[in-house]
Design a protein around this nucleic acid. Structure first.
Length: 496
RNA sequence: GGCCCCUUCGUCUAGCGGCCUAGGAUGCCACCCUUUCAAGGUGGAGACACGGGUUCGAGUCCCGUAGGGGCUACCA
């Protein structure tokens, strides 16, 4: 028996409650989640609210909604509890204070009485905090203590030598200790800083693999030293690459709205993906493909398959420009392969939000016609909204939409007028019968299919781009179809 | 400024010393199909940042330069 037993994989997402969920944070969380799921471990949510000033009410709800929408399940957290709670840092203050005190007692940390003014002076003089309170004599210390001046607790970094960290993604990273400062680990208000809090929590919550964004890499050596000073066995670490703006310049920000090359605003907040009409599976697939790949030249894959293959060590260490253009394509792939009922179910609220009263049976008949044409769920409004509008109020589109290439108002009116008796004479009004009859009709009158079919499309849908014409006519029914064609003929006959 | 990380087609990526005259995807272009929209099919243009090493052999290892990103708070 080995005394180093296999401990369960436990990863966590530890956001600050600063409001809406940013896709960059979600991507980091996703990698930790995939890793935990791959190993059959646990995924924990912990709220890091040690900076009270930045706390935004409702953040936890936003986080939970984002995870639920994406289908990322959480095993332990403030909303479900768990064996290692509480999962909100502001409820664990005594723990941090106790360990900070312990570090001071053991000589690994010290009380620093530097005032804001002192700190500002030191900064102005170049360089940061100069460790002036690090090595006080017992007399000085007790004197300051007696004065009751406010203080913070700083960690004593080694003054020389190096600290080597092992990162699962990039291997060993070496830092010169002399470059590092004596970081504050407990603030004067009694709250810990991230540096202390996350370590105390990761230890007590038995986190096996710390997954976090690369911006934490510079403080990695500080964390290593704190773990060691506390005498705890370290977890493994993976510093994940971050997403840059679509142009590759700067970290993707939630503050500054970004615009793609085509001028569309770029979604970065989870609720923006929802309101833009993206499918959660597509978004998850999209995110998984940035910085990691399936490995089989496969771009489209299920979350289950990704879980099976995911490894942190395979994550690309390089940051990447946010490839938002790919999401439209991926989303269209998911829409194309959706089950009709499923697609209809997702389309319904979009249509309703646009003000349409949706008939479920009608929607189920229309949905299949849309699958190859929608990039996002929202496209349904422009593409097929006319199905759900009040048919009686339908108006013929303007002439420029009705008139096809190499035609004019007169010829278009003639073509449409002539189609009416042909359609009325059909035994059946299914799209195949219509198609055959209209192809014959086009040939008879000497026009191209495209011209005739295109005029019909415009007349019947009022749009240049629409679901397939004959399928649309079949759903509209003969009477409505003919009525619309007559309206178009009429519109073309009227002087402009 | 200092420190750390990163660097393959426009973009996301495969590549872990010979299988690479560098593969896939997206976007773009062309053609085909077609109900002149889409989808689908076929094809095309398009990259190893640069310079030194190491090696019989380098996209792959090392060093340097350049560029990019991050950190440098009593924020995370």
């Amino acid at each position: 028996m080995s005394n180093r037993q296999m401990s369960p994989v436990r990863t966590r997402y530890a956001p600050s409650p600063t409001g809406p969920q940013h896709i960059g944070g979600i991507r980091s969380a996703l990698f930790g989640w995939l890793f935990a799921r791959h190993h059959g471990g646990q995924f924990i949510l912990r709220i890091e609210d040690t900076d009270q000033k930045r706390s935004v009410p409702g953040s936890l709800e936003a986080i939970l909604e984002a995870f639920e929408w994406l289908g990322l399940d959480i095993d332990e957290g403030p909303h479900v509890g768990g064996d290692y709670g509480p999962y909100i840092q502001s409820e664990r203050l005594e723990l941090y204070q106790a360990w900070a005190k312990r570090l001071v007692e053991q000589g690994h940390a010290y009380k620093c009485y530097a005032s804001a003014e002192e700190l500002a002076e030191m900064r102005a003089a170049g360089g940061g905090y100069d460790r002036r309170y690090r090595d006080l004599s017992p007399e000085q210390a007790s004197k300051l203590e007696a004065q009751g001046k406010p203080y913070v607790i700083r960690f004593k970094m080694p003054l020389s030598g190096q600290t080597t960290g092992v990162d699962m993604i990039r291997g060993e990273v070496v830092f010169d200790n002399a470059q590092l400062q004596d970081a504050v680990i407990l603030k004067s208000d009694g709250f810990p800083t991230y540096h202390l809090a996350h370590i105390v929590d990761d230890y007590h919550m038995k986190i096996s693999h710390v997954t976090r964004a690369v911006e934490w890499l510079p403080s990695f050596p500080l964390h290593i030293r704190i773990w060691e000073a506390l005498g705890w066995e370290k977890p493994q670490f993976a510093h994940l690459p971050v997403m840059l703006n679509p142009n590759g310049k700067g970290k993707l920000s939630k503050r500054k709205q970004q615009f793609a090359a085509d001028g569309k605003s770029v979604p970065v907040l989870v609720h923006e993906f929802i309101s833009a009409g993206y499918l959660p599976e597509a978004v998850l697939n999209f995110l998984t493909n940035i910085g990691w790949n399936f490995g089989d030249n496969r771009e489209v894959f299920s979350t289950e398959d990704a879980i099976e293959r995911f490894q942190l060590k395979d994550v690309n260490p390089a940051n990447s420009a946010y490839p938002i253009a790919k999401l439209d394509w991926l989303n269209s792939q998911y829409i194309q392969t959706s089950a009709v009922d499923d697609l209809a179910r997702r389309l319904k609220p979009v249509l309703e939000a646009a003000g349409f009263a949706v008939d479920d049976d009608l929607l189920r008949r229309v949905a299949p016609l849309l699958q190859a044409r929608l990039k996002t769920l929202n496209d349904v409004v422009a593409m097929a909204g006319f199905f759900f509008a009040d048919w009686e109020t339908f108006q013929a589109p303007p002439a420029e939409i009705l008139i096809k290439r190499k035609m004019d108002g007169v010829s278009t009116a003639n073509v449409l007028r002539g189609a009416i008796p042909v359609l009325n004479a059909l035994d059946e009004f299914d799209h195949e019968t219509q198609h055959r009859a209209m192809a014959t009709y086009a040939k008879d009158i000497g026009y191209k299919n495209g011209q005739v079919f295109g005029s019909l499309r415009a007349a019947v849908t009022g749009q240049r781009v629409s679901p397939p014409t004959f399928e649309t006519m079949e759903i509209l029914g003969r009477a409505e179809t003919v009525r619309r064609i007559e309206l178009a003929v009429q519109a073309l006959s009227e002087p402009a």
